[in-house]
Simulated assay, not measured.
Amino acid sequence: MDEYERNIIPQIEAIYDTFTALEKTIADYFIHYDGKADLVSKNVAKRLYVSEASLSRFAQKCGFTGYREFLFRYQQSFGTTSRSGASHHIKKVLNSYQELLNKSYSLMDEGQINRIVDMLSKKKRIYVYGKGSSGLAAMEMKFRFMRIGANIEAITDEHIMKMNSVLLDGDCAVIGISVSGKTEAVLESMKIAKKCGAKVVLMTAHTGKKFLEFCDEIMLFALKENLEQGKAISPQFPILIMVDMLYSQMLQLDEYRRETLHEYTLEALDER
């Protein structure tokens, strides 16, 4: 597939926790919009029992000048797709993956990817913190980046995580992974690492101003309802999309040497 939808729903979901109760009502409407009703501000306001001024403030909080600009961007990317030849449950899984791919494309920031890769390539040691499914993604990141010569370690135990964070310095980089952005052990360890001089990157589905106090970069990945519980698909999927983007970009740095290292590691694994 060569074309992807770029839409603003991932942006709304990323700042959802910062909305007031009224703004969440508006956000929910646009996140779950079925395309059947018109989106004229007067009619939407009446439908949601809010004022048109509330719609305007919501649009501004999402980064637009007003509701008109928000609506233009929203309608630009709004569309429906249909799939046939599969059962309802199979369609649901496929649609979920496609939705996350489209959202990942919308959230992808190539400039940020280049900055993070440049940061990682200059550090002597890289540590990836994560728990649960995020910990599994951290382990996968370790295995991928080790194969191209990165000195990287994944830490999934919160006690080791905290002990490790106090031993870091300016030669280190820490990548913390938390779908919710609320994993206390990961966030606290990242704060300590930052105080010790390490560069810090947070990978999350939820952003907030509080992260700016201790993060050099906040890399957003896509979110889907109930993703953290892994009810329909693996919660690691959107994380690994972003990990693969970083991996692909890092592979381009000194490409010949890194591809050679990759081949050597594969040969080592094949040896009996």
Rank of each mutant, 00 (worst) to 15 (best):
A21G: 07
Q60M: 07
C196G: 04
R6V: 15
K162M: 13
E110N: 09
Y127L: 09
D157N: 09
I9G: 04
A185M: 03
R47K: 15
S51L: 06
K182D: 08
M219G: 00
L55H: 11
A86V: 15
Q98E: 10
G208T: 09
Y129S: 00
G197H: 11
A150Y: 15
V93P: 01
Y29S: 08
L212R: 12
Y264Q: 13
N164F: 02
A86H: 12
E13W: 01
I152Q: 04
G197T: 15
L168W: 01
L240K: 02
I15E: 00
Q75F: 10
M1T: 11
L227I: 12
H159V: 14
G149D: 07
L55P: 03
E228Y: 00
G176E: 03
F64Y: 13
V117P: 05
C172M: 04
S82H: 08
G63D: 08
N151R: 09
Q76I: 01
A232D: 14
T207Y: 03
L107I: 06
E99V: 01
K36H: 11
D171G: 13
Q76G: 07
S180L: 08
I8M: 03
N226H: 14
A268G: 05
V117I: 12
N95F: 13
L39E: 06
E52N: 12
I233Q: 07
G149K: 11
K36G: 10
G132A: 10
S54W: 07
A173N: 07
F214C: 07
I113M: 02
Y16Q: 06
E259D: 01
F64K: 04
Q75E: 15
I12L: 14
S234K: 08
G170P: 04
K224S: 06
A37S: 13
G132I: 04
F145T: 03
N114T: 12
L100T: 08
V186Q: 03
S234L: 10
L39T: 14
D169R: 05
D109F: 00
S106K: 03
Q229S: 15
S189H: 02
I155C: 10
K124L: 11
I160P: 00
A137Y: 06
V179W: 00
N7C: 05
A53H: 06
S189E: 00
D157L: 02
S87G: 14
G230H: 03
E99Q: 02
R258Y: 09
L261D: 07
E255I: 10
A37H: 11
K92V: 01
A193Y: 10
N164V: 01
M250N: 05
C196R: 14
K162R: 14
T156Y: 01
Q75R: 14
D109C: 00
Q229C: 04
M242S: 06
R47I: 13
G149L: 11
S133W: 02
K182T: 13
A53V: 08
I148Y: 03
L168S: 04
T265K: 08
T25Q: 15
M1S: 10
G66S: 02
R147L: 12
I113L: 04
D157A: 06
G176V: 07
L48W: 04
I116S: 03
N114M: 06
N95Y: 11
I218M: 09
R73I: 01
D34R: 15
Q11A: 10
G130A: 12
F72V: 09
R83V: 15
I26W: 10
E5S: 14
Y247C: 07
T204M: 02
G230W: 04
G130C: 04
E267Y: 10
